[in-house]
Design a binder for these strands. Structure first.
Length: 485
RNA sequence: GGCCCCGUCGUCUAGCGGCCUAGGACUCUGGCUUCUCAAGUCAGCUACGAGGGUUCGAAUCCCUUCGGGGCUACCA
């Protein structure tokens, strides 16, 4: 019986959570849910100059919005808290000092400029840059002398000779020779912990069993394992690692604003569904193994296994995300669609949220559902139904002001006037009979003119349905108005 | 420079020695449908980075090479 799985997502929020972070969080979450394990959320804010409360709150908010719920962490608590590293400083200090006592670590008095000089020399000599072990075995006198100079000391981990090997669930057996893993710093001169100390200590203390994280951390794994050893952890209790491939921008460079939007907040504003974002991101570096692509969060949990995760990096493709979002939107029920869309219409100042407005929006949704790829398009599509000061868009005005167009509008006005049953079917029947059959016009010409008069644009939802929604009175008024342009 | 990771259509991927004249999805191109825009539908384009092996047989195994990326901090 293997022990219960516990996976953690531990971002260092130095900005809004971005696509890469979220892909990692998603895999962490899906793995925890798939195995029936625990999903732990921890904030790595040891670099206090770069992590702010604002970013931390945004990260929490983003995860919640995406539906990636955690069992242990900020807000929900848990028996291994606190879950903000800034609140665990004394724990790290304890271990750093313990390591020094055990001789696994030592105080290093080298100054940054001295260290830089050493590295410079190593590079010049074509050697692997890294700490040269200068302070490894200082005598009491040397230490006293450094202290007398007023030098500060960092805590540095001693890397023994030999190497570290471990199994990466995605990449197989990994082996690192310690010749290329120099002694590393655990705590700054002011006593504050570094990532290498804090992650390892927390993962052990919080009983994390699986670490799925970005491949940028792959080469820091031997250092992390070194800390486990120093903590006295038995090898069979080490967490299992799986290093996820990167998500890169379309230009093959690191994802940034240049090659695709990185901030999840941006996608939220644009009107992407959390499930679409997660579905798309799940496909970046993972696949169910068959041809299925459109999956729900529930299905992701059922299907997700680390073994199916790819080892090669993936490029982010906005078009595919949009396609998936469009599919998800089309699959929404009208009530779900309505709930998503209302905030966008209100934010655009098209409606205030009154019941009659909502009723009209609801009637209009079926004709636009298959025409959008994100919710932010809804206000522009339904604008013609709600604007107070209706006006035809500038570039289309001349298309309704020529003689031919005026003839179409005049005839439409005349024949629409007596229509009593104002339904799209009746409207279409009348306009086809007069404009197409009698006047002999091509549909795209005839209806085009009416479309501009009614919706103000050459592009709109289906014309007759739009007219039905707008109502007879408003339609006739707009046609009349277009006639005098 | 050193160490490490990665390499199938434009993109995401399927593939784990014969089912591959390499499948799916997105994009793109063309057709159909059509009141615009979409959606839908049909078709097309296009890939195993290169070179050597191993094998009756290789996208799949091995080696070399080239290319991309990461790490090399008192960042994470």
């Amino acid at each position: 019986m293997s022990k219960r799985v516990k996976v953690r997502f531990a971002p260092s929020p130095t900005g809004d959570l971005h696509v890469g972070n979220i892909r990692t969080a998603l895999f962490d979450w899906a793995y925890a849910r798939h195995t029936g394990g625990t999903f732990l959320f921890r904030i790595e804010d040891t670099d206090t100059t770069r992590v702010t409360d604002e970013y931390i709150n945004a990260a929490i908010d983003t995860l919640k919005w995406l539906g990636l719920d955690w069992d242990e962490g900020p807000e929900v608590g848990g028996e291994n808290g606190p879950y903000l590293q800034s609140q665990r400083l004394d724990i790290y200090t304890y271990w750093a000092e313990k390591f020094v006592e055990q001789k696994d670590a030592y105080y290093c008095y080298c100054s940054p400029t001295e260290l830089e000089a050493v590295r410079e020399a190593q590079r010049a000599a074509n050697q692997a840059p890294g700490y040269n072990g200068h302070c490894r075995d200082l005598t009491a006198n040397q230490i006293a002398a450094y202290k007398a100079e007023g030098r500060g000391a960092v805590v540095r981990m001693r890397m023994p000779d030999g190497g570290t090997s471990f199994i990466d669930l995605i990449r197989g057996e990994m082996a690192f020779d310690h010749k290329f893993v120099p002694d590393f710093v655990l705590a700054r001169a002011d006593g504050s912990p570094l990532y290498t100390l804090a992650v390892a200590v927390d993962d052990v203390l919080m009983k994390v069993t699986h670490i799925l994280r970005g491949e940028d951390l792959l080469s820091s794994t031997p250092r992390q394992i070194r800390v486990y050893q120093a903590m006295g952890l038995k090898e069979e209790d080490y967490p299992v690692f799986a290093h996820l491939p990167f998500v890169m921008g379309s230009d093959n460079a690191k994802l940034s604003k240049r090659n695709g939007e990185v901030s999840i907040a941006w996608y939220r504003d644009k009107g992407f569904l959390p499930e679409a974002i997660c579905n798309y991101l799940a496909l970046l570096g993972w696949s169910p193994g068959d041809d299925r692509e459109n999956i729900t969060m529930k299905e992701l949990c059922e299907l997700f296994t680390v073994e199916k995760v790819n080892s090669s990096p993936a490029r982010f493709d906005m078009k595919k995300l949009e396609a998936i979002n469009g599919d998800k939107i089309r699959a929404l029920t009208i009530d779900e669609f309505l709930a998503w869309v209302l905030p966008f219409l209100i934010k655009a100042n098209l409606i205030t949220g009154q019941v009659d407005e909502i009723a009209l929006v609801k009637r209009a949704l079926p004709i636009i559902q298959e025409r959008i790829i994100m919710f932010s398009e809804v206000p522009v599509m339904l604008k013609f139904l709600f604007v107070k000061d209706f006006a035809i868009e500038a570039q289309s005005v001349d298309k309704v002001s020529d003689v031919a167009a005026k003839d179409v509008l005049k005839r439409s006005l005349k024949d629409l006037e007596p229509v009593r049953d104002w339904t799209h079917a009746a409207i279409e029947a009348v306009l086809r009979a007069s404009l197409i059959d009698e006047m002999g016009l091509k549909p795209r010409i005839a209806f085009g003119a009416v479309r501009i008069a009614i919706t103000g644009s050459t592009i709109s939802p289906p014309l007759f349905e739009s007219m039905e929604l707008l109502g007879k009175e408003a339609c006739l008024a707009r046609i009349s108005a277009a006639l005098v342009l």
